[in-house]
Amino acid sequence: MKKLMSYLTMMCLLVLLLTGCGGSGGGAAENSSDSNSADDAIKIGVSAFPGWYTWYAVQGFGAFEDNDVNVELVWFNTYSDSLQAFNSGQIDGVCAALSDTISPAVSGVDFKVVMINDNSAGADGIVSQGDITSLEGLKGKTVATEIGTIEHFFLLNALETVGMTEDDIELTNMTVENAGPAVISGQVDAASLWEPSLSYAASEGDTNLLFDSSETPGLIPDTLMISGDILDNRSEDVQKIVTAYFEGMQTYNEKPAEALEFMAEQAGISTDEMAVAMEGARLFSIADNYAAFHEEAEDYTYLPYTAERTAAFLLDQGMVSDELSDPESIFDSTYIDALYEENPDMVVPDTQAE
């Protein structure tokens, strides 16, 4: 990553993100969700991760309007705030890593995962001070991440690859947006980050990228969760949302420069920086989604397997209070299945760097 363009402007932009730059909301949605009426907007929480910025391309290309569905993208500066807003019923849907669906499932929150946006394939990573050159070098060091979120989960999995646990480090709770500047400035020894904070931290100052999600393929699927209330009362609109997403992705494939403009505007970064950030996300097509829901396998290509293994890991780490008794219960493939029957070959952009 160090050979990539300089990210000097990113410090200011990340600070602006913390104060609501480019978003349609603050740290949490203000209004309680009660979207049974077809006239009401379905509120979907979005936060700063490349695979989720794609929703702003979908919106920018007019795909929601084309499918006659009223959607409000609600921006959250802090990812964990979006999860709390969804779990408390303030919003109707949320972009969430699969690992962050386990706790609400165990707690009895009524929802389903209806689609996968992407798999993280380098968009999550661990950056350290320059004198630390391996994961083993983190022993006894301060490592920042947002506790209880996907980055915490990713960090624990990374440590496990070298026989280490959370007890071997000094964990510091910090939002991803703040953790990047903190590792650059030397406030912490390392940080577990996602894009665009990851590229920024790995490119500025004397830092090392120790580990990224390309080394754990399939571990981090990024999903769309929809509340049971909306699924029960506005199922046709959910189908329209999923359809709009993939139509938007097809337009993204045809007009990548325009799509990146929509996404970069929301992120408050340049289109070139957004293109780099997107290299760490493997966008899922309709066919990819269908396979992940239905093609049984004992690996991370199969969603229920991934959920089962993730839930077991989180329980072992004390990050959830109980077992996930039925991993398949958190998924609803209805909407993907309908699209797959109609157009299984619809393409999405290939964002992976060659």
Rank of each mutant, 00 (worst) to 15 (best):
L283Q: 05
E204D: 08
Q266D: 01
D222G: 10
Y300Q: 14
S213E: 11
R309C: 05
L231Q: 09
T223F: 08
D189E: 12
A277R: 11
P304D: 09
E298A: 04
S270E: 00
S192E: 13
E308F: 00
L283H: 03
S329F: 08
E265D: 15
A201P: 03
D206K: 09
L303G: 04
G205M: 07
D232Q: 07
Q239D: 14
S203V: 03
F313M: 10
V242C: 02
F246L: 01
L260S: 03
I230Q: 12
S203H: 08
T251M: 05
D316F: 08
S227L: 13
E298Y: 01
P221A: 09
D322V: 11
D288T: 03
L260Q: 07
D316G: 14
A277V: 06
E279I: 02
A259N: 12
L260N: 09
S203P: 01
L315H: 15
V238N: 10
M274Q: 10
N233W: 06
S329L: 03
L198F: 13
A281D: 13
G228S: 02
I226W: 12
Q266C: 08
E247G: 15
N253A: 14
I184W: 05
E195G: 12
V320K: 03
Y252N: 11
Q250T: 07
G205L: 09
E215M: 11
Q266T: 13
S214P: 06
E279Q: 10
E261Q: 13
D206G: 14
Y200S: 01
I230V: 15
Y252K: 12
I286F: 04
D322H: 15
P256G: 07
S270G: 12
T207R: 12
E328R: 14
I226Y: 13
M225D: 15
A292K: 12
V188L: 01
E296F: 05
S214L: 03
M319A: 11
S321G: 10
N253V: 02
D322S: 14
A307R: 07
P221I: 06
V242K: 01
D189L: 11
E258S: 00
W194M: 15
E298R: 04
H294K: 10
T223K: 09
A182I: 00
S214Y: 07
E247S: 14
